[in-house]
């Protein structure tokens, strides 16, 4: 199978994941577009790794 098709699918999957995460975050009332919460001060304990 052409590797490029894999790439295309990967991109679409990534986009879908971002959207879902975004919607879920908005519903929780988080700073919807703050992926790693620097400087937004929201209730972002749910962020990746939770360091």
């Amino acid at each position: 199978m052409n590797w490029s098709i894999l790439l295309g699918v990967a991109v679409i999957a990534y986009a879908a994941w971002i959207l879902v995460r975004h919607i879920r975050r908005s519903a929780k009332g988080d700073c919807a577009a703050c992926p790693y919460c620097s400087g937004c001060g929201g209730d972002c304990k749910k962020h990746e790794g939770g360091k």
């Binding site: 991109v11 986009a15 971002i18 577009a33 937004c40």
Partner: peptide, 20 residues
């Protein structure tokens, strides 16, 4: 922090929106 934030937005939400 601001630049990082901007880049993250660009490569996540904007990217997703663009694909959509």
């Amino acid at each position: 922090d601001k630049a990082k934030d901007f880049l993250q937005r660009a490569f996540t939400i904007i990217l997703a929106a663009t694909v959509v």
